[in-house]
Nucleic acid binder design. Structure first.
Lengths: 343, 343
DNA sequence: TTGAAAGCGCTAACAA
DNA sequence: TTGTTAGCGCTTTCAA
């Protein structure tokens, strides 16, 4: 019996469907008594309005959607709550749409925008190295959040919010150098990666140079192609290889915290200690890093600020602002216990 | 210009809207040439069909929805892929809908069922201790997956798939006893919990009894009320208190792996070792437990089997089967490195 | 192989 | 304060 419609309710209550609609939608121009009576019947019948019909009719919603490519990404997950909370403050409703690895986020965005009559879209992840011209058909404001911006990347016709990957990576490695490390290995993205992985590697190389350290390509290790990219499994496998190579190093700089946790396992399992034998530095600033032993020193991405800035830019654009901005927010080095100072 | 409709396309192509619809939907009864021509125009115009209109018109879909309460739950996340893959095999489309802590999963289910004309719903998490009579209005088959079934819980008018929490918990603690442990502490759910926490605690107590060990209530610790329930933070806080209490114990049995990771931190931070000073046993069987040091001995819930069985029951019900079943699947004890054999 | 038209369930404008 | 009605964009008969 899932097929009761507004018509049935109207009939039962002996009113017009317009009146039922008014009761449902808290319309001011309705008699309290009538409303109560209708609501009572609705409850008794278990009537639920059909959202498709509603969306179809409504000329616009007040909804902003968050399109997440990589919903399992812990760093992203930490941001959902912030989005929800901040969007609620300014009276937008909020919708999270997960996009799988295989799905095309542009198609999803296009469809969703129409179906839900969205006011705006925030892309979280994905869209890395292609600007798709179909985006121009989207017809509503959208913004890219936490998307690594390769300098060679195609120009986009929208605003974006991210960190400056090259610079923050430089700072991280520079910190390791200042702590006395001279042999610093790095775990980065896949060898073919031209986004985050490349940018952070560039920062690494610049920091070495600035500290007069010669770059040793053997100390840079790429995520394996046959394992999902930024995972604990991949970190474990790559670190194990690095350790077995017999190459000397005192610090290991890793492109993401999750990968670093895999490195922890490989190091500890080999009988070595952190940070006594190897210092480890991560990137992202996941809370869970506090709960590893020793707690992970890392670069914390300003997720809350990124959320706020993204919303601000998007809302401005919804309000008519036409200038697109590329905003880079500063990250923060979190000194915890996994890096040792060398004399 | 996000407002192109099927009508516009029809006009441009000089055909009826019916023909455009046929082109979009791969309808057999359409001339190949016409179809190509229309598809070309559609692409050029960036036309995207409106799903609301489509859903409204369609008399039924072929979609099964997964309603997840607690999308951040790692154990659940591990199941998404399985659902996707298994549902695809039998040609159902698949939809994940996250339900937040505050949302009412029944309302969400009711709305979604109508909006998307669903064939069936799988509830993952939530719905623990209340059977809501509104569910009878849902009008389509649904099933409860991984929901702890308290024996006192209200009778439900649907099938369910889960493990036998009491029994598996008994096995886990019995194993610790067989390994020579006599002082076994337990970390369980909140003190007010009447679902998983209570059931697993009952298993714990029965195992102690079966092994002639006297129950010491001081060794049972509940998740703190001011911290999200099954989290690493809570595990850390509770374990820290337990350690500081000075109570003696050689093994710590923990209601969930994630909570156990928090316990790891508290133990290691206090200068003690696992398993030399304290053996630790988790519950769930998360892969990530392999990457802690030492790897976590735990009870693995048969997530893949649970997915398959849930789908099987649901599909049978969609096909007309009327008997509801409560299925309990066996869990598996994963012996890894965090439990030491005492002489 | 095609076009015209009905109607899915709802909201909102208009009339009463 | 209420009922009636047009029409949102689509699919699917029915007739041509």
């Amino acid at each position: 019996m899932g097929n009761i419609t507004i018509k049935d309710i109207a009939k039962i209550c002996n009113v017009g469907i317009g009146t039922v609609s008014r009761a449902i939608n808290d319309d001011p121009g309705i008699n309290e008594k009538t409303k109560e009576r209708i609501l009572k019947v609705i409850k008794e019948c278990g009537y639920v309005p059909n959202n498709s019909a509603r969306n179809l009719k409504l000329s616009d919603s007040n909804t902003i959607a968050l399109l997440v490519k990589g919903i399992e990404n812990q760093f992203f997950q930490g941001m959902f709550g912030y989005f929800q909370q901040e969007l609620e403050k300014i009276k937008y409703s909020f919708l999270v749409q997960a996009v799988t690895e295989e799905q095309d986020e542009i198609s999803v965005a296009l469809e969703l925008a129409k179906e839900k009559k969205l006011k705006g879209i925030i892309f979280l992840g994905g869209l890395i190295d292609h600007a798709d011209e179909r985006l121009k058909y989207i017809g509503i404001p959208y913004i890219l959040c936490t998307v690594a911006l390769n300098k060679d990347a195609p120009e986009r016709h929208c605003s974006s919010v991210s960190i400056d990957d090259e610079k923050e990576s430089f700072n991280a490695v520079n910190y390791l150098c200042k702590m006395g490390h001279k042999k610093i290995a790095m775990l980065t993205g896949r060898e073919t990666d031209y986004a985050v992985g490349r940018l952070r590697q560039e920062g690494y190389m610049r920091a070495l140079k600035a500290n007069g350290i010669e770059f040793d390509p053997r100390l840079v290790r790429f995520m394996k192609d046959d394992i999902p990219e930024y995972t604990i499994e991949n970190g474990y496998a790559v670190t194990k290889e690095l350790l077995e190579s017999g190459l000397e190093f005192t610090a290991l700089y890793i492109i993401s915290d999750v990968v670093a946790f895999g490195a922890y396992k490989a190091i500890l399992e080999s009988g070595k200690r952190i940070p006594e034998d190897y210092s480890v530095m991560g990137f992202d600033g996941l809370d869970v890093g506090n709960y590893y032993h020793p707690s992970l020193t890392t670069v914390k991405q300003p997720s809350f600020d990124m959320v706020c800035k993204s919303i601000e830019l998007l809302v401005n654009e919804i309000a008519g602002e036409e200038n697109h901005q590329k905003v880079f927010l500063p990250a923060e080095l979190l000194e915890r216990d996994s890096v040792k100072k060398l004399k």
